[in-house]
Design a protein around this nucleic acid. Structure first.
Lengths: 230, 230
DNA sequence: TTTCATTTCAAACATGCGCTTGAATCAATA
DNA sequence: TATTGATTCAAGCGCATGTTTGAAATGAAA
C-alpha cells in the first residue's frame, strides 16, 4: 500500500523530480479544468498534457477532486496577487474614486483575456455546479473582496442604509461587471459579428462607474424617502 | 429496425397511451435536467421518475440530447407565455415605466421560486456549458426580448448613442437582474443566514429601476460630453 | 556497491453511462 | 377473431472513466 505524502517528505529537497511532475500536473490541470470543466476534464487528458502517467494524479493528489480543489485555490491566489482589489487607488481617496478603482480592477481581471482568465472560467462553472472547493474559495478569497466593496459602498451611501439595500447595491455593481462574462454564450449569439471579442476592460469599467455612482446615490435617496414617509 | 415517428403518426389519436409516456418523460426530464444539469442527469433516473423503460427515451426522442433540446425549448416557451415581457405596462407608457415593467417581469420570472424557475436553472447551466440547443433558444426566445429592451433603452436614452454604449446599457440592466441568480452559490455562502431565501422579486426590481434610470441618464450625459469634447 | 524509500509505469479493474436488441404486449382495424 | 403497426420491456452491449495494483526504475544515503 502507498503512503500518499507527496510533497511533505521528511527530508529536504523541495524541488525534487517528483515536484516537477506534481507541478506539471497542476499546470496542465489548470488549463484543462478551465477549458473543459470538472466533469468533462479527464485525468487521462491531464496526465497526457503533463507527460505523466495516469496514476500520477492519484499518487500526488489522492483523487481528481482534491487535484481540482488545489488548482482552484492556487489559481485564485495567483490572480489576487496579480490584480490587487484596490485597483491602485489609495486608501484615502474619495469613495467615488475607490469604487471606480474596484470596478476597473475587477474588469481587468475578467476581461483581460489570455490564460489570466482561467480563474473566471472556473468560477463561472462553480456558479452552475458548485464543487466542495467553493466553500473555501468564498471564505478565504471572495469574502475579503466583498467586505472591501461593502466598505466602499458604506462610505459612498452613508452608514444608515438597511442591510438589504446594501446587498442590492453590492449586487448592482457586481452584476454589471460580471454580465458580459457569465452570459457570454448568449451575448456572442446575439452579436455574432463580435464573436470572440471581449469588451475593452477599461471602457466597460468607465461605463459601469458612470451608471453606478449616480445610480446608487439615487437608490439612497429612494430609501431615505421611504424612511421619512413611514 | 424502429421508425421513430413518435408523435406524428399518420392516423389521429393525439393523446394515445404513447403520448402519456412521452409527456411523463418530458416532465420528469425537465425537473431532473434543471436540478442536476445535462451531464449529471441520467436517462435511467429520468425514466425511473417517469415510470418508463430506459429505452423509452431513445424510442420517443431519438437520444438524450434531442430530449434535452425539446425540454429546453418547451420550458422557455411556457415561461414566456406565463410572464409576458412587457410586465403589463402598456405600449404607450413612458420609457421609464416600460423599463421598470421589463425589469419587474424579468425579476418575477427568475426569483418567483418553485418549478417556474426551472428555466432559469437550465439557462444558467447553458452559460457555463452551452449545448447545441442554445442557438435556437437565443434566436427564437432571447432575441425578441433583447430587441424589446434595446427599444426601451433607445427611447430612454435617445437614438444618438453609439452601439457600444447601448450594449453596455443593456448589460447594465440585465447584469443587475441576473446577479443574485447566477451567483447564488457565492451569495449563499457570503450570507449563510439567508440560505435558501430568494430576494423579493418586486423589491429587487424596484431597487434596480431606482439605480438604472438615473444611472443610465448619467451614462448618456457622459457619452454626450465625450462627443462634444472630441 | 548495497540499501531503501520515493516515484513512475503498463496493465487492468470496477463502475456507470447512453444506447440497442429482439421478443412481448397492446390496441385498433379488417 | 386474425392481422398489423405502434409501444413497452428486460437484458445486455460497447465504451469511457476514475482508480488500483504490483512491479520496475530512480536516486540519495550508508
Amino acid at each position: 500500500m502507498f503512503e500518499m505524502k507527496g510533497c511533505t517528505h521528511g527530508h529536504q529537497s523541495p524541488p525534487t523530480t517528483s515536484y516537477d511532475t506534481r507541478q506539471r500536473i497542476l499546470d496542465a490541470a489548470t488549463e484543462i479544468f478551465a477549458k473543459e470543466g470538472y466533469g468533462k476534464a479527464t485525468v487521462r487528458d491531464i496526465c497526457q498534457r503533463a507527460n505523466a502517467n495516469v496514476a500520477a494524479v492519484n499518487y500526488h493528489f489522492g483523487d481528481k477532486e482534491k487535484l481540482y480543489s488545489e488548482v482552484l485555490m492556487q489559481t485564485y491566489q495567483a490572480m489576487l496577487n496579480r490584480h490587487p482589489t484596490s485597483g491602485g487607488v489609495p486608501e484615502g481617496a474619495s469613495p467615488e474614486e475607490r469604487l471606480a478603482g474596484f470596478i476597473r480592477a475587477f474588469c481587468r481581471r475578467i476581461y483581460g483575456g489570455g490564460p489570466e482568465s482561467y480563474l473566471s472560467w472556473m468560477m463561472a462553472r462553480e456558479m452552475a455546479e458548485p464543487s466542495p472547493a467553493l466553500d473555501d474559495v468564498v471564505q478565504k478569497m471572495v469574502r475579503p473582496q466583498q467586505q472591501q466593496l461593502i466598505a466602499i459602498l458604506n462610505a459612498l451611501l452613508g452608514p444608515g442604509l438597511p442591510e438589504q439595500a446594501l446587498r442590492f447595491a453590492m449586487g448592482s455593481v457586481l452584476g454589471q461587471i460580471l454580465f458580459f462574462h457569465y452570459c457570454r454564450p448568449v451575448v456572442e449569439r446575439l452579436f455574432p459579428e463580435r464573436k470572440g471579442l471581449l469588451p475593452d476592460p477599461d471602457q466597460l469599467a468607465d461605463a459601469i462607474a458612470a451608471v453606478s455612482i449616480p445610480g446608487l446615490k439615487a437608490l439612497r435617496a429612494k430609501y431615505e424617502r421611504a424612511q421619512e414617509g413611514r
